[in-house]
């Protein structure tokens, strides 16, 4: 197991290094000069050159990239202040330090992702397994149909409708907002309830369909039939053998989804005016803010890679037939 983790971690670092280089060099292909963000009126070539110097953009791109990578491991000094490792620099747009900004935004994204995951796992897996258990019945058809409808829904469509119905027009619920759980657990829950439910809609459909089909496959496996033939109860067989066997593809999907969600649920954050990692990513792209863009990109990529490793490691626990080597 240790060898597996070391090998995968080294592989992950190579992937992240590749992503960082790819993003950094690709950024300069955009026909937009980030110096213009700070150039004010009557922006002159002299002023642009001065800003290039201030931002370190006057150096060759490979040199800039080298300094950037060194900063991540050893820290750097900027005119705005010292930046200790891991130093991802300061925003071109507003001089915010990148790493603290990401850490500041992450709790919201974590809360949003965690709540959404709980909702779509509970509802999605529950509905899928119920449909599989009652295959061919009204329950199966109902959940299959609902999941088909939900899978065609989009957050930017459902979100405003839910807000109009529950918040603006009928005032049944409060405006969605983020309050740290440490400050006000009730406010945290009530403030994120609508975003959780809306976010989970598109994911729920996928999990319902996936869990239904994998469970149906599992129920037809020989070891399940054998268990039944031995006289074990349907419920015992369902949860002890079939359910466990159906988890591998679900865990694979879940690992990728968790990584993606923690990297920022952009549309959900925009729809509900929440300031998380997704919002930060979009803003940094729109503002061609290289340091922030790099920071968010690497952070998100690291989470996706990390959860892939966790998923691979989890296979061994879920299915004893899988051996990590």
């Amino acid at each position: 197991m240790l060898r597996f983790l070391v090998r995968r971690t080294l592989g992950a670092l190579v992937i992240l290094l590749f992503i960082s280089a790819f993003t950094y060099f690709l950024f300069f292909a955009i026909p937009h000069d980030p110096a213009l963000l700070s150039c004010g009126k009557n922006c002159t070539p002299d002023n642009i050159a001065l800003i290039h110097r201030n931002l370190g953009l006057d150096e060759p791109i490979p040199v800039q990239y080298f300094h950037y990578m060194v900063g991540i491991f050893a820290g750097r000094h900027f005119s705005v202040g010292d930046c200790s490792a891991p130093c991802f620099g300061y925003s071109f747009a507003n001089s915010d330090p990148v790493w603290p900004t990401i850490l500041n935004r992450f709790p919201l994204t974590l809360s949003l992702a965690a709540g959404g995951i709980v909702v779509f796992l509970l509802v999605g897996l529950g509905a899928g397994m119920l449909a599989a258990w009652r295959r061919g019945t009204f329950i199966d058809k109902f959940f299959s149909s609902v999941s088909l409808v939900l899978s065609s829904m989009q957050i930017y469509f459902v979100g405003p409708i839910v807000l109009a119905l529950l918040v603006y027009n009928n005032q049944i619920m409060d405006q969605p907002k983020y309050v740290p759980i440490s400050e006000d657990p009730v406010g945290w829950f009530s403030g994120l309830l609508i975003p959780w439910c809306v976010l989970s809609i598109i994911f729920t459909a996928g999990y319902t369909r996936m869990s239904r089909s994998t469970m149906i496959d599992q129920l037809q496996e020989e070891h399940v039939r054998t268990a039944r033939a031995k006289g074990m109860s349907s419920r015992y067989v369902f949860f002890r053998y079939a359910w466990r066997g159906s988890l591998i593809p679900i865990v694979t999907m879940l690992g990728l989804d968790i990584g993606t969600l923690l990297g920022g649920a952009m549309i959900t954050e925009f729809t509900f005016s929440l300031a998380g990692i997704g919002r930060l990513a979009v803003d940094s792209v729109l503002r061609t803010d290289l340091p922030m863009l790099m920071g968010v990109m690497l952070f998100s990529a690291a989470l996706i890679v990390l959860f892939n490793i966790i998923v691979d490691a989890a296979y061994a626990f879920i299915d004893p037939r899988v051996r990590l080597s």
């Binding site: 109009a164 603006y168 005032q171 405006q175 929440l274």
Partner: peptide
């Protein structure tokens, strides 16, 4: 002051004139 409110969002909130709005 809170940020990230696009015009459709701020308009809908203010039109509703509910609670904190």
């Amino acid at each position: 002051i809170t940020f990230n409110h696009q015009a459709p969002d701020s308009t809908k909130r203010l039109m509703s004139d509910a609670g904190e709005n």
